[in-house]
Design a protein around this nucleic acid. Structure first.
Lengths: 187, 187
DNA sequence: AGCCTGATGACAGTCAATGACATCAGCGTC
DNA sequence: GACGCTGATGTCATTGACTGTCATCAGGCT
């Protein structure tokens, strides 16, 4: 056993989510979060760049997973199919166990514009790396950007469905989202 | 003549833009901006909700203008045509005179993630009110949202073109953007 | 045993943001 | 023309996010 309790970042995230849920984001100070996690305020800022980031822990991993899924798509896949393949890979993260945590997180973010800003820039970053992944597959630049943006729309659709329906698999929600997008494009 | 120099908000915005351009956004304090404008820090926060907002002055007016243009579109216009009509109305704001200011502003925002976050949420808000405007025209909900998002893509395209080419009229850039979108949807 | 490393604590400092109260030119009112 | 009201501003105090710097110290390496 180590010198300190393990998983400091995880404890901070858990403490933050609980306090944000109880008192609200703005009414919770970083010092309070740190105290609940058995750490100091200074240590909080060693694990997270700012107060908001504690709610976006793991977003880099999600991004890696999705981009990896795009890269792994067969060469024969069309751009939107490659994106769908990437999004389906996120199924490994969005499992049933994670749902309660995800729902709490969502309600905190929805109650706070500052946090929505952060969420938007995370999605914009994801769009940018998805476009890069498509370009690596030989997709022309503007088509890559547009398809990546459409992929984000599908992601949001699927994520919302997965959160709403208890027994909706994320993978299937992605599939439905892509089909729905195709229908809209046809109309 | 009034008791104070006129247009306090405008002076603050001008001072902020100059200082951000010289020293950078983070290296400039609100007190410095206020001092250059001949005001106090406290007064800055009476005109702007936070330090970032000083760079987004007039975004409500832009929004009103665009939504007004959508509302004014003939009933026979398709959703995307109505959106285009709205975006063209922004031509009244994006004139040649405004370009230098707009370019400085852009370079400041591009250098700072915090400011990009704010820009993203402004665009998301615009998308939301555009979708509302379409629903008022009787467009079904999900189509309204999708078309509004597409409209934002056209806005970004047109804005970028208008900033790059000195003698590109914003109105024309919008038209090109819509045509380009149509071509992509056809492919 | 001695040294190094990396995660943490302690402490001081800056600056964004807010609340409370004071000021005072210009305005209309009587 | 004094009188009081209004609204934009100034002054002061405070909180809390974030940063820089140095100290601490268990565990691993030699």
């Amino acid at each position: 056993m180590g010198r300190w309790e393990p998983d400091a970042a995880g404890r901070l995230q858990q403490a933050a989510l609980e306090l944000f849920g109880q008192r609200g984001y703005e009414q919770t100070t970083v010092a309070e979060i740190a105290e609940r996690a058995g750490l100091t305020e200074r240590t909080f800022f060693r694990h997270f760049a700012d107060k908001r980031e504690v709610l976006f822990r793991g977003s880099e991993e999600l991004q890696r997973l999705i981009v990896g899924g795009v890269d792994d798509a067969p060469a024969s896949a069309t751009p939107i199919e490659a994106i769908a393949n990437g999004l389906r890979a996120a199924d490994a993260i969005f499992d049933a166990e994670r749902r309660p945590h995800s729902l709490k997180r969502r309600s905190v973010i929805e109650a706070n514009p500052e946090l929505q800003e952060r969420e938007l820039i995370k999605l914009a970053t994801l769009a940018a790396v998805l476009a890069d992944a498509l370009r690596r597959r030989g997709v022309e630049d503007s088509a890559a950007r547009l398809t990546a943006d459409a992929g984000i729309a599908v992601f949001r659709f699927a994520f919302e469905r997965w959160q709403r329906d208890a027994d909706q698999r994320f993978e299937d929600a992605v599939q439905d989202g892509v089909e729905r997008l195709r229908a809209l494009a046809r109309a």
